[in-house]
Protein backbone atom coordinates (compact mmCIF):
# COMPACT_ATOMS: atom_id res chain seq x y z
CA UNK A 1 0.00 0.00 0.00
CA UNK A 2 1.23 3.41 -0.96
CA UNK A 3 1.43 6.57 1.03
CA UNK A 4 -0.41 9.85 0.93
CA UNK A 5 -4.02 10.81 1.25
CA UNK A 6 -5.14 12.73 -1.78
CA UNK A 7 -8.07 14.94 -2.32
CA UNK A 8 -9.16 15.76 -5.84
CA UNK A 9 -9.58 19.51 -5.68
CA UNK A 10 -12.46 20.58 -7.84
CA UNK A 11 -12.98 24.01 -9.28
CA UNK A 12 -16.23 25.71 -10.06
CA UNK A 13 -15.07 28.16 -12.76
CA UNK A 14 -12.09 29.59 -10.88
CA UNK A 15 -13.12 29.01 -7.25
CA UNK A 16 -12.36 25.85 -5.33
CA UNK A 17 -15.53 23.98 -4.45
CA UNK A 18 -16.42 24.00 -0.80
CA UNK A 19 -16.59 20.23 -0.70
CA UNK A 20 -12.84 20.11 -1.34
CA UNK A 21 -12.24 22.04 1.87
CA UNK A 22 -14.71 19.87 3.74
CA UNK A 23 -12.78 16.77 2.73
CA UNK A 24 -9.33 18.26 3.28
CA UNK A 25 -10.05 19.34 6.82
CA UNK A 26 -11.67 16.03 7.71
CA UNK A 27 -9.05 13.78 6.20
CA UNK A 28 -6.24 15.67 7.88
CA UNK A 29 -6.73 14.16 11.36
CA UNK A 30 -6.84 10.70 9.80
CA UNK A 31 -3.65 11.34 7.88
CA UNK A 32 -2.02 12.66 11.01
CA UNK A 33 -2.91 9.45 12.86
CA UNK A 34 -1.52 7.31 10.07
CA UNK A 35 1.48 9.55 9.64
CA UNK A 36 0.70 10.31 6.03
CA UNK A 37 0.58 13.52 4.07
CA UNK A 38 -2.58 15.17 2.82
CA UNK A 39 -2.29 16.28 -0.78
CA UNK A 40 -4.73 18.34 -2.82
CA UNK A 41 -4.63 17.51 -6.51
CA UNK A 42 -5.80 20.02 -9.11
CA UNK A 43 -6.35 19.08 -12.72
CA UNK A 44 -6.93 21.70 -15.41
CA UNK A 45 -5.40 24.06 -17.89
CA UNK A 46 -4.46 26.87 -15.55
CA UNK A 47 -5.12 26.63 -11.87
CA UNK A 48 -5.60 29.96 -10.07
CA UNK A 49 -2.69 30.96 -7.84
CA UNK A 50 -4.77 31.34 -4.71
CA UNK A 51 -6.21 27.83 -4.91
CA UNK A 52 -3.14 26.12 -3.45
CA UNK A 53 -3.02 28.43 -0.46
CA UNK A 54 -6.69 27.87 0.23
CA UNK A 55 -6.14 24.14 0.29
CA UNK A 56 -3.24 24.58 2.63
CA UNK A 57 -5.40 26.62 4.94
CA UNK A 58 -7.75 23.67 5.21
CA UNK A 59 -5.03 21.14 5.96
CA UNK A 60 -3.25 20.13 2.77
CA UNK A 61 0.47 19.45 3.24
CA UNK A 62 1.07 19.41 -0.43
CA UNK A 63 -0.66 20.63 -3.56
CA UNK A 64 -0.19 18.92 -6.92
CA UNK A 65 -1.19 20.93 -9.93
CA UNK A 66 -1.63 18.86 -13.06
CA UNK A 67 -1.87 21.29 -15.94
CA UNK A 68 -2.29 20.69 -19.67
CA UNK A 69 -3.92 22.57 -22.53
CA UNK A 70 -6.12 19.57 -23.25
CA UNK A 71 -7.57 19.79 -19.75
CA UNK A 72 -9.22 23.20 -20.17
CA UNK A 73 -12.64 21.63 -19.85
CA UNK A 74 -13.54 18.52 -17.95
CA UNK A 75 -13.59 15.35 -19.98
CA UNK A 76 -13.63 11.90 -18.41
CA UNK A 77 -10.96 10.72 -20.80
CA UNK A 78 -8.57 13.60 -20.24
CA UNK A 79 -8.91 14.07 -16.52
CA UNK A 80 -8.94 10.37 -15.75
CA UNK A 81 -5.82 9.75 -17.80
CA UNK A 82 -3.97 12.63 -16.18
CA UNK A 83 -4.98 11.64 -12.68
CA UNK A 84 -4.62 7.89 -13.08
CA UNK A 85 -1.14 8.18 -14.58
CA UNK A 86 -0.08 10.35 -11.69
CA UNK A 87 -1.66 7.99 -9.13
CA UNK A 88 0.19 5.08 -10.69
CA UNK A 89 3.38 7.02 -10.40
CA UNK A 90 2.95 8.27 -6.84
CA UNK A 91 0.95 5.40 -5.34
CA UNK A 92 -1.13 7.25 -2.75
CA UNK A 93 -3.03 5.15 -0.20
CA UNK A 94 -6.29 7.05 -0.48
CA UNK A 95 -7.86 9.36 -3.08
CA UNK A 96 -10.99 11.26 -2.14
CA UNK A 97 -13.36 13.20 -4.38
CA UNK A 98 -16.38 15.37 -3.85
CA UNK A 99 -19.50 13.45 -4.84
CA UNK A 100 -20.30 16.01 -7.50
CA UNK A 101 -21.18 15.38 -11.12
CA UNK A 102 -17.49 15.60 -11.99
CA UNK A 103 -16.27 13.81 -8.88
CA UNK A 104 -18.53 10.79 -9.34
CA UNK A 105 -17.67 10.45 -13.02
CA UNK A 106 -13.94 10.89 -12.54
CA UNK A 107 -13.65 8.67 -9.45
CA UNK A 108 -15.35 5.74 -11.18
CA UNK A 109 -13.13 6.00 -14.24
CA UNK A 110 -9.91 6.47 -12.32
CA UNK A 111 -10.76 3.64 -9.93
CA UNK A 112 -11.29 1.33 -12.90
CA UNK A 113 -7.97 2.43 -14.35
CA UNK A 114 -5.92 1.97 -11.20
CA UNK A 115 -7.81 -0.97 -9.71
CA UNK A 116 -8.96 0.94 -6.67
CA UNK A 117 -11.89 0.18 -4.38
CA UNK A 118 -14.42 2.98 -4.56
CA UNK A 119 -17.33 4.08 -2.38
CA UNK A 120 -19.70 6.71 -3.73
CA UNK A 121 -21.50 9.55 -1.99
CA UNK A 122 -20.08 8.96 1.48
CA UNK A 123 -21.30 10.87 4.49
CA UNK A 124 -18.50 9.99 6.94
CA UNK A 125 -14.87 8.92 6.84
CA UNK A 126 -12.97 7.41 9.74
CA UNK A 127 -10.35 4.98 10.95
CA UNK A 128 -11.49 1.91 12.80
CA UNK A 129 -9.77 0.55 15.90
CA UNK A 130 -7.26 -1.39 13.86
CA UNK A 131 -6.39 1.67 11.85
CA UNK A 132 -8.31 0.70 8.69
CA UNK A 133 -9.91 3.46 6.68
CA UNK A 134 -13.70 3.14 6.52
CA UNK A 135 -16.48 5.21 5.11
CA UNK A 136 -20.17 5.40 5.79
CA UNK A 137 -22.61 5.86 2.96
CA UNK A 138 -26.34 5.74 2.36
CA UNK A 139 -27.80 3.03 0.16
CA UNK A 140 -31.32 2.32 -1.06
CA UNK A 141 -31.95 6.06 -1.35
CA UNK A 142 -31.09 6.57 2.31
CA UNK A 143 -33.24 3.75 3.65
CA UNK A 144 -30.05 2.02 4.83
CA UNK A 145 -26.63 3.30 5.84
CA UNK A 146 -23.62 1.08 5.51
CA UNK A 147 -20.06 1.14 6.76
CA UNK A 148 -17.78 0.25 3.91
CA UNK A 149 -14.31 -1.19 4.26
CA UNK A 150 -11.64 -1.80 1.64
CA UNK A 151 -9.88 -5.03 2.69
CA UNK A 152 -8.47 -5.96 -0.73
CA UNK A 153 -7.99 -2.57 -2.27
CA UNK A 154 -4.48 -1.52 -3.28
CA UNK A 155 -5.81 2.03 -3.38
CA UNK A 156 -8.86 3.32 -1.58
CA UNK A 157 -11.12 5.82 -3.23
CA UNK A 158 -14.30 7.51 -2.10
CA UNK A 159 -16.45 10.38 -3.16
CA UNK A 160 -17.81 12.49 -0.33
CA UNK A 161 -21.24 14.07 -0.35
CA UNK A 162 -21.00 17.87 -0.25
CA UNK A 163 -22.33 19.84 2.73
CA UNK A 164 -22.07 16.91 5.10
CA UNK A 165 -18.59 17.01 6.59
CA UNK A 166 -18.00 20.12 8.66
CA UNK A 167 -14.89 22.02 7.57
CA UNK A 168 -12.52 23.29 10.22
CA UNK A 169 -11.94 27.03 10.26
CA UNK A 170 -9.23 27.81 7.67
CA UNK A 171 -5.81 28.73 8.92
CA UNK A 172 -4.30 31.12 6.40
CA UNK A 173 -0.92 30.89 8.00
CA UNK A 174 -0.46 27.33 6.82
CA UNK A 175 1.39 26.87 3.59
CA UNK A 176 1.74 23.83 1.37
CA UNK A 177 4.42 22.70 -1.02
CA UNK A 178 3.17 23.16 -4.57
CA UNK A 179 4.29 20.79 -7.29
CA UNK A 180 3.35 21.26 -10.91
CA UNK A 181 2.92 18.15 -12.98
CA UNK A 182 2.69 17.92 -16.73
CA UNK A 183 0.68 14.93 -17.85
CA UNK A 184 1.18 13.10 -21.07
CA UNK A 185 -1.94 13.42 -23.13
CA UNK A 186 -1.77 12.23 -26.70
CA UNK A 187 -4.04 13.33 -29.50
CA UNK A 188 -6.28 10.27 -29.42
CA UNK A 189 -6.61 10.05 -25.66
CA UNK A 190 -9.63 12.31 -25.45
CA UNK A 191 -12.21 10.60 -27.58
CA UNK A 192 -15.08 12.82 -26.60
CA UNK A 193 -15.66 16.29 -28.05
CA UNK A 194 -17.49 18.96 -26.11
CA UNK A 195 -19.78 20.57 -28.63
CA UNK A 196 -21.46 23.06 -26.38
CA UNK A 197 -22.17 23.91 -22.78
CA UNK A 198 -25.64 25.15 -22.11
CA UNK A 199 -26.17 27.11 -18.94
CA UNK A 200 -29.72 26.77 -17.77
CA UNK A 201 -31.30 29.27 -15.49
CA UNK A 202 -32.65 27.41 -12.49
CA UNK A 203 -36.17 28.34 -13.51
CA UNK A 204 -35.69 26.48 -16.77
CA UNK A 205 -34.54 23.24 -15.20
CA UNK A 206 -37.24 20.68 -15.73
CA UNK A 207 -39.16 19.80 -12.60
CA UNK A 208 -38.22 16.14 -12.83
CA UNK A 209 -34.52 17.02 -12.82
CA UNK A 210 -34.63 19.86 -10.31
CA UNK A 211 -32.71 19.65 -7.04
CA UNK A 212 -34.99 22.09 -5.29
CA UNK A 213 -38.64 22.70 -6.05
CA UNK A 214 -40.90 25.37 -4.64
CA UNK A 215 -44.54 24.61 -5.35
CA UNK A 216 -47.62 26.73 -4.91
CA UNK A 217 -51.18 25.54 -4.45
CA UNK A 218 -54.66 26.86 -3.99
CA UNK A 219 -53.38 29.06 -1.16
CA UNK A 220 -51.46 31.22 -3.66
CA UNK A 221 -54.80 32.89 -4.43
CA UNK A 222 -53.79 34.28 -7.84
CA UNK A 223 -51.30 33.87 -10.64
CA UNK A 224 -49.42 37.08 -9.83
CA UNK A 225 -48.49 35.73 -6.41
CA UNK A 226 -46.30 33.07 -7.97
CA UNK A 227 -43.77 35.84 -8.56
CA UNK A 228 -43.04 35.58 -4.86
CA UNK A 229 -42.08 31.93 -5.25
CA UNK A 230 -40.01 32.70 -8.32
CA UNK A 231 -38.02 35.26 -6.36
CA UNK A 232 -37.21 32.70 -3.70
CA UNK A 233 -36.40 30.16 -6.42
CA UNK A 234 -33.87 32.55 -7.96
CA UNK A 235 -32.09 32.84 -4.66
CA UNK A 236 -31.69 29.11 -4.02
CA UNK A 237 -31.61 27.81 -7.58
CA UNK A 238 -34.99 26.16 -7.42
CA UNK A 239 -37.64 25.35 -9.99
CA UNK A 240 -41.20 26.50 -9.36
CA UNK A 241 -43.97 23.92 -9.53
CA UNK A 242 -47.67 23.90 -8.76
CA UNK A 243 -50.41 21.70 -7.38
CA UNK A 244 -53.32 20.65 -9.55
CA UNK A 245 -55.57 23.24 -7.93
CA UNK A 246 -53.21 26.02 -9.01
CA UNK A 247 -52.98 24.62 -12.52
CA UNK A 248 -56.75 24.26 -12.71
CA UNK A 249 -57.14 27.83 -11.65
CA UNK A 250 -54.94 28.75 -14.59
CA UNK A 251 -52.17 30.25 -12.46
CA UNK A 252 -49.57 27.85 -13.82
CA UNK A 253 -49.43 25.60 -16.85
CA UNK A 254 -49.95 21.85 -16.91
CA UNK A 255 -46.23 21.25 -17.40
CA UNK A 256 -45.65 22.76 -13.95
CA UNK A 257 -48.03 20.37 -12.25
CA UNK A 258 -46.64 18.07 -9.58
CA UNK A 259 -48.70 15.10 -8.49
CA UNK A 260 -50.30 11.81 -9.44
CA UNK A 261 -51.54 13.09 -12.77
CA UNK A 262 -48.75 15.61 -13.23
CA UNK A 263 -45.01 15.18 -12.82
CA UNK A 264 -43.51 12.83 -10.30
CA UNK A 265 -40.50 14.53 -8.75
CA UNK A 266 -37.96 13.69 -6.07
CA UNK A 267 -35.77 16.71 -5.41
CA UNK A 268 -33.52 17.14 -2.42
CA UNK A 269 -35.80 19.85 -1.13
CA UNK A 270 -39.48 20.39 -1.79
CA UNK A 271 -41.15 23.49 -0.41
CA UNK A 272 -44.96 23.36 -0.55
CA UNK A 273 -46.61 26.73 -0.20
CA UNK A 274 -50.36 26.85 0.30
CA UNK A 275 -50.71 23.19 -0.67
CA UNK A 276 -52.90 21.03 1.55
CA UNK A 277 -51.07 17.88 0.52
CA UNK A 278 -53.76 15.51 -0.69
CA UNK A 279 -52.66 11.98 -1.48
CA UNK A 280 -52.83 12.83 -5.18
CA UNK A 281 -50.22 15.53 -4.66
CA UNK A 282 -48.14 13.43 -2.29
CA UNK A 283 -47.94 10.64 -4.87
CA UNK A 284 -46.01 13.07 -7.04
CA UNK A 285 -43.49 14.39 -4.50
CA UNK A 286 -43.45 11.98 -1.57
CA UNK A 287 -39.94 10.76 -2.32
CA UNK A 288 -38.42 14.21 -1.96
CA UNK A 289 -35.57 14.11 0.55
CA UNK A 290 -36.66 17.08 2.61
CA UNK A 291 -40.23 18.36 2.53
CA UNK A 292 -41.17 21.78 3.84
CA UNK A 293 -44.74 22.96 4.23
CA UNK A 294 -45.99 26.49 4.62
CA UNK A 295 -49.73 26.57 5.15
CA UNK A 296 -52.03 28.51 7.41
CA UNK A 297 -54.29 25.51 8.07
CA UNK A 298 -52.72 23.43 10.87
CA UNK A 299 -55.01 20.53 9.91
CA UNK A 300 -53.67 20.32 6.35
CA UNK A 301 -52.48 16.76 5.65
CA UNK A 302 -49.18 18.11 4.36
CA UNK A 303 -48.09 18.64 7.97
CA UNK A 304 -48.17 14.89 8.57
CA UNK A 305 -45.85 14.32 5.63
CA UNK A 306 -43.30 17.10 5.90
CA UNK A 307 -40.03 17.45 7.72
CA UNK A 308 -40.38 21.12 8.52
CA UNK A 309 -43.54 23.11 8.68
CA UNK A 310 -44.67 26.63 9.34
CA UNK A 311 -48.28 27.23 10.23
CA UNK A 312 -48.77 30.78 9.07
CA UNK A 313 -49.76 33.00 6.21
CA UNK A 314 -47.47 32.18 3.33
CA UNK A 315 -47.68 35.74 2.06
CA UNK A 316 -45.93 36.85 5.22
CA UNK A 317 -43.46 33.96 5.40
CA UNK A 318 -42.20 33.63 1.84
CA UNK A 319 -40.82 37.17 1.34
CA UNK A 320 -39.00 37.06 4.66
CA UNK A 321 -37.57 33.64 3.89
CA UNK A 322 -36.33 34.89 0.55
CA UNK A 323 -34.42 37.64 2.33
CA UNK A 324 -33.06 35.24 4.94
CA UNK A 325 -31.92 32.77 2.31
CA UNK A 326 -30.26 35.59 0.42
CA UNK A 327 -28.32 36.46 3.54
CA UNK A 328 -27.30 32.83 4.11
CA UNK A 329 -26.21 32.49 0.51
CA UNK A 330 -24.16 35.64 0.78
CA UNK A 331 -22.38 34.17 3.77
CA UNK A 332 -21.28 31.40 1.40
Amino acid sequence: MGKGMWVFAELAETAVRKVTFEILSNVRPIADKKGEEVCAVFVGKTIPEAAADQCAAYGAHKVYIIEHDALASYTSDGYAKALADFINKQQPSIVLFGATVVGKDLSAKVAAKVNAGLATDCTAINLDDSGNFNVRRPMYAGKVYADIGFPNAPIIMASIRPNVLIPTPPDASKKAAVEKVTPEIAAGDIRVTIVETIKTAAAKVDLTEAEIIISGGRGMKEAANFKMLEEMADVIGATVGASRAAVDAGWKTVSDQVGQTGKVVSPNLYIACGISGSIQHYAGMGTSKVIVAINKDPEAPIFTKCDYGIVDDLFKIVPVMTQELKKLKAEG
Partner: peptide, 12 residues
Protein backbone atom coordinates in the same frame (compact mmCIF):
# COMPACT_ATOMS: atom_id res chain seq x y z
CA UNK B 1 -12.58 -9.76 -6.41
CA UNK B 2 -14.38 -7.01 -4.54
CA UNK B 3 -12.21 -4.20 -3.33
CA UNK B 4 -14.88 -2.62 -1.18
CA UNK B 5 -17.15 -4.46 1.22
CA UNK B 6 -20.15 -3.69 3.33
CA UNK B 7 -18.98 -4.13 6.92
CA UNK B 8 -22.17 -3.22 8.70
CA UNK B 9 -25.61 -1.92 7.83
CA UNK B 10 -27.76 0.42 9.85
CA UNK B 11 -31.31 1.58 9.56
CA UNK B 12 -31.44 5.33 9.84
Amino acid sequence: GAKSKVLKCYSP
